[in-house]
Nucleic acid binder design. Structure first.
Lengths: 155, 155
DNA sequence: TCCTTTTTAAGAATTTTTCTTATATTGAGT
DNA sequence: ACTCAATATAAGAAAAATTCTTAAAAAGGA
């Protein structure tokens, strides 16, 4: 018998595979297992946590692979990197939402937009998790200087 | 002759000192110089950059002190920590603004709110710096579990 | 000024992240 | 299914980033 959540997971893995092919990322067992570990967890696991989880199925996987894979997935937009700057955590949920990050323990909590998909949140949503010290909004991308440099190399 | 920007800096250092006393952070020369280095720069310097800058005035300062100081300043809300999670950068500008972070080189660019002080930005503002891959909004603070634990220890 | 508490430098240690190399795997083209 | 070139991987070493330990120094209240 296949449970509902297993179906969900299979779907997610399938669309992950498609996304990989679209981004020219080869679909390796390691990548699938790493994605699966991330997608299974609602806890925004750290690199180390992902490593430990995947290891149970693939005892020979290396930590380096987890680092490489998470970074390339982030670059491809398949997962997000969140958390404090010295305690990276990852999230495979691509639906628009924000994070409450505890400056003490590094825990990451989800905040889903109150209305629509525009950046929007209510004070109540955030206060639910703790006392907000600061709001940190970052746009991640490739800056003009870098894309210019990449073009210059090609030409 | 005292230039305008030197006056500005003195004011900023003075208010920094006041803020430190309010937060029970002792006003040491090291802290003042680290703040000054950060406040002088518009480049969101890394820990290492701050270290190199402060070193010119205080050759004996240790890298560890820069780490400790920047972290305690962040905790006190005197500076912000921005940038990619494995390439921390700091910002002493507390006026509300956002950041464009290059996923390639780690460069951090300022984006000032278009209207008022509510979280708000225009696509044009962001596109100016490069191609946005994802928007990362984080609330940093102390979560309920941690503040509860801190209270439990006290009682 | 004296005293207690906090901060610091120095260096060691730890943790995190990346690199190197040889081997293995993927996916495109038969 | 088979071959081959390009890419990804494990293993271990290396580098980079961050934190800890200790003794000495400095800050700020009495």
């Amino acid at each position: 018998m296949q449970t509902h959540s297993q179906n969900d997971m299979n779907e997610r893995v399938d669309s992950f595979k498609k996304l990989c092919r679209k981004c020219a990322l080869r679909v390796t067992n390691q990548r699938v297992e790493i994605f699966r570990a991330l997608a299974q967890s609602k806890e925004h696991p750290s690199v180390e946590k992902v490593f430990q989880c995947v290891r149970q199925k693939m005892p020979n996987i290396s930590l380096d692979t987890v680092y490489r894979t998470l970074s390339s997935m982030e670059e491809a937009g398949v997962v997000f990197r969140v958390g404090l700057s010295n305690r990276a955590r990852f999230d495979a949920d691509l639906t628009p939402h924000y994070h409450f990050v505890c400056m003490e323990c590094g825990e990451v909590y989800d905040i889903f937009p109150a209305f629509g998909k525009e950046p929007f949140w209510t004070a109540e949503q955030v206060k639910e998790f703790g006392e907000v010290k600061n709001v940190n909004l970052q746009f991640h991308g490739i800056c003009n200087r870098c894309s210019k440099a990449a073009n210059d190399v090609k030409n």
